[in-house]
Nucleic acid binder design. Sequence first.
DNA 1: GTCTATATGGCGATAGAC
DNA 2: GTCTATCGCCATATAGAC
Lengths: 201, 201
Amino acid sequence: MTTEEIILQAARKVFREKGLEGSRMQEIADEAGINKALLHYYFRSKDKLFMKIFSEAIQSMLPSVRISLQEVETLNQFLSFFVHEYLKLLNELPWLPRFILQEVNRNPKLIKDIMGNRELPINEIDRLIRRDTEKGLIMPISAEHLMVNVISMIIFPFAARPVIQTLIFKDDEHAYKQFLIDRSEQITQFVLRSISIQSKP
Amino acid sequence: MTTEEIILQAARKVFREKGLEGSRMQEIADEAGINKALLHYYFRSKDKLFMKIFSEAIQSMLPSVRISLQEVETLNQFLSFFVHEYLKLLNELPWLPRFILQEVNRNPKLIKDIMGNRELPINEIDRLIRRDTEKGLIMPISAEHLMVNVISMIIFPFAARPVIQTLIFKDDEHAYKQFLIDRSEQITQFVLRSISIQSKP
DNA sequence: GTCTATATGGCGATAGAC
DNA sequence: GTCTATCGCCATATAGAC
């Protein structure tokens, strides 16, 4: 492994845990087992090194919605797929929402700089909704509110884990882990029940 | 207004926007129109001043759930009330979720120190659910998942405003404000449709 | 490329005059 | 109580030997 890659790995770990302002170049150097000056030799400044790590994170946070939209027939299929895939990602990278929100809130320009032209294909989702509404499969609903609802339920428990764990689970870590395991199933059911036209006994 | 209150007001503004590590004592002093040394005269240290501001914020974030639980007959009533009251609070203090999450994620001990024994009355909500389930009014659902769903949908658009505004609303601020106005109605409908037993044409 | 040593600046905090 | 001046520390960044 090259020195550059060793530095990046150390920087990832430290920046994730402490953010830009909370991290020290010395700590990154220690983590990488090298000297502080080498960091500047490879990346010129702390800000430049941070931006490398941060844009990596943003990239992995933008899920392949487009792909899933193309493979899908109904809104229900799309939503099940979206929830499942997104939660799979977050279970592998549970620190992602915290890291991104922390830095973006401190410096909102970061989003535009990095995300560039990416955005959620609201129009296509809206088309799916209307098609299924006309077929009598689902109730009409605003695409924006629907997607914000779904995304909120997926991400928030990761973004606010310490608060939720204390406030709702009385700091029972095991209960919280089980909660996260059930989450995919629970969100999907919750959303589909809300938009579906049902007639249950 | 006393000097102490002037300082507190300046500190609120600066800490809210930049967090503990992002704020400078000099900036607070400038904002208050006084000298840096006076801050230390009144509050000894930056940390002590910050904790004053932060615990204020936490207190206002804990809504009067208990009160609304006592005034309520059915789960539907409770949820409508809860969503409405919470969003009313956040519309007055939209910076609250960002501020709290930012600091809590950096230092998770803060929650326990400040919130002390407070927690969401999950057991009472669970009792409400079971009562209405037996009456055939609603479907059975986990109280934890239900409340996390509701809280997520309420808070997340405030906690992640910059991201959502860019990703979903293409930075159209007017559209985002209208979205927030509709939010209370939309969340309530979304939740009640999901848990209710319906038979619609 | 990698190190040691040092420059440079900024910040929290304190001393002490008024 | 409020100010000016300054201490002491720590963090980023650079100079320069190897």
